[in-house]
Amino acid sequence: MSEPISRRDFMKATVYFVGGLVSAAIGLPSIVYLLDPALRSEAGEAWVPIGKLTDMPEIGKPYPFSFTRVRINGWERTASTHGGFVIRRSEDPNDLLLLNSRCTHLACTVNWKEEEGIFACPCHDAGFDKEGRVTHGPPPRPLDRYENFRITEDGVLEILYKEG
């Protein structure tokens, strides 16, 4: 210590320090409070049954399916509907392709057009082939796939749905 600190400077420093502590003690919880819903991880997964495999006998034909999930957001239960197509690639019951019917462009629902052999999105005239690849239109990537599925002992096809 070369120079003794003056009383005025000491008071100043103390006020700033204590004031800073108080501000942090109030400010940080406030920010956490405001951002709380964004800070939550909404991880959760469930096996969702989508139908009996015996009801989808034809190879190469897209069978549509849909299911509804209910989520609790704050004080309200929100139902959201998801859908897709099951395509059997061969006789092997595990050789399945499960496409998500949500268009990868702006999340409209695509429909199967039998005569053209594509999944067509009505919103911006986009198309996907049977493998989900983009044939035309603005989508940036192929249709999403449900990679995790299983067939139960009763022959029911189930997919693993991941939240978030």
Binding site: Y33, D36, W75
Partner: peptide
């Protein structure tokens, strides 16, 4: 429909909601 539920949500679920 939701006033009481939203208060319960503030008190039990929101971080520092009980404090505010």
């Amino acid at each position: 429909d939701h006033a009481y539920d939203s208060i319960t949500y503030i008190m039990n679920d929101v971080a520092f909601g009980w404090l505010v």
